[in-house]
Amino acid sequence: MSVLNAVLRAAVDGLLSPFRGLSPWVGLAVVSILTAVPMLLVFRATSNQTALAAVKKQIHAGLFEIRLFNDDLRAIMRAQLHILRQNLSYLRLSLPPMLWIVPPLVLLFAQLQFHYGYRGLEVGQPALLEATIRESALDGATGKPTLRLDVPDGLRVETPPLWIASESRFSWRIAAERQGDYTVKLGFAGQEVEKSVHAGERVVLRSPERLAPTFVNQLLYPAEPPLPGDGPFSAVSIGYPERALSLFGLETPWWVVYLGLLFLVILALRNAFGVTI
């Protein structure tokens, strides 16, 4: 999984690199086109196009029947039942291509989330840096343990470490003094981990959390390599603000925009690719 994530990170990052300085809409529009084309091809290759076309004709027939016999309640009910049955058939026929399309789409979503889901730290704007320590690494010690935090030039630590014993967690308030990519280092019990921190508005890969190397963590948080499995840290996080895109003045999550664009592109291209969906 780590290798797959590394490959995907490099691929998606490379793909989106020309759009870093542009509005997120541009990158999302390009990604929606680039994903719509293979989706249409996969759909065409893995679905029974003839059967799908027949089912859609049956649904249309049912709709015509309702329109033609709109004064006959029994005919309308019969047509409704027919449409319902055909819809179930449509779903059944759509299932095999979806099994091919959904897994890579999930991996793509996870990558896009860390490009478009968060904004970088604003210069001077405080954010929370947190590190959670494994219970086993505390070794039953009471009192406040000691953790070393090193931040590079360009970041500043605004508070002393806050220790919450019940959550085995350290918190700091940090702020960026200028835009850039930074790496902070945390040392505990002789072991050291790093965490990336990005300050700036550009659309780049941002990792809000670095977690232990479980399958689910790696699936959902692919933006950074997992923490060492045998180390004292179970999580290190930085509180990036969430990004929303403006759609008709409404704050909208990136994935709503992406799915909307994807839907429009698929609608526009399906005839050109000869795909019945």
Partner: peptide, 11 residues
């Protein structure tokens, strides 16, 4: 509100 056991800081 979480208060640090040593430092004058709270979350």
């Amino acid at each position: 509100v979480h208060v640090d056991p040593v430092e004058p800081v709270a979350k």
